Simulated assay, not measured.
Amino acid sequence: MFRIWGKIMKDNRLVKDHTVCIEDYTMTRTKKVYAALDELCYTFDLAKPIWLKSNQQDFIRHARTRFTQDNFIESIDFDYLDFQVIEEDY
């Protein structure tokens, strides 16, 4: 199972969170990550963030990244969206 935890943070407080579980073993890791991000954005009613180079590097190194206002075209009413892998199948 592949699980991603998404958290919306504002003023160092957790506003919303959601866990996405993907059990499709035929998908690549990259497709699972994008599918989880799509589901999180749908659940939180957000536009999809843009992956900047810093986000890609953080995610590759730590399996975690933060999407701030710089990643969204529309304005957001929170500080950042924390996106983290919490369980991964190999």
Rank of each mutant, 00 (worst) to 15 (best):
D89E: 13
C41T: 12
D24S: 04
K48G: 01
N71Y: 07
E23N: 09
V15F: 14
Q56I: 09
D70T: 08
T30P: 00
D38F: 04
R66A: 10
L14K: 14
E23Q: 02
E87K: 05
H18V: 07
R66G: 01
N55W: 04
D17I: 01
R64P: 01
G6Y: 01
T65V: 09
L14A: 02
Y90D: 15
F2Q: 00
D79I: 03
L40I: 12
K16D: 12
R3P: 00
K32L: 03
Y90G: 12
F72T: 11
L52A: 07
W5Y: 04
Q84E: 14
N55I: 09
D82V: 01
I76Q: 07
F2T: 00
W51A: 05
L14D: 09
K10T: 11
Q69K: 10
Y34S: 06
D38S: 12
Y80T: 02
D11A: 14
M1V: 01
F78S: 11
D45T: 11
Y90V: 08
K31W: 02
R64Y: 11
A63K: 11
A47D: 14
Q56E: 14
Q69C: 03
E23T: 08
F83C: 06
D89N: 07
V15R: 06
R64E: 13
E87R: 03
A47I: 11
T30F: 08
K16S: 10
I50V: 13
T19Q: 06
K32G: 01
I73G: 03
F59D: 04
T65E: 03
E88I: 11
E74A: 12
K10F: 04
M9N: 04
Y25G: 04
I8G: 05
I50F: 14
K31I: 04
I73L: 12
T28Q: 06
R66H: 07
K48M: 14
D89G: 05
R64A: 13
Q57Y: 13
E88M: 10
F44S: 08
E39P: 00
D82E: 15
K7L: 02
M9L: 13
F2H: 05
A36P: 04
I73T: 13
F59R: 10
I86A: 03
A36G: 09
P49V: 11
P49N: 05
R64G: 05
R61D: 15
F67C: 07
S54N: 03
T43R: 13
E23F: 01
Y34N: 11
L81F: 08
I60K: 13
D79W: 04
E87T: 09
I86Y: 05
W51T: 07
K7E: 15
V85R: 09
D45E: 15
Q69F: 04
R61K: 15
L52P: 00
V15W: 09
W5T: 01
T43V: 15
D24E: 10
P49I: 10
F44K: 09
D58P: 00
P49G: 03
N12G: 06
D11V: 02
Q56L: 08
V15E: 10
R64N: 06
F72M: 09
V85Q: 04
Y25K: 12
K31L: 09
Q69M: 08
R29L: 14
Q57L: 14
A36Q: 03
R13L: 13
K16Y: 14
Y42E: 15
H62S: 10
C21R: 03
V15M: 14
K32H: 07
S54F: 02
L37C: 02
E87L: 13
F67D: 06
I73H: 01
Y42A: 14
C41A: 06
L37E: 04
K31A: 11
K48R: 15
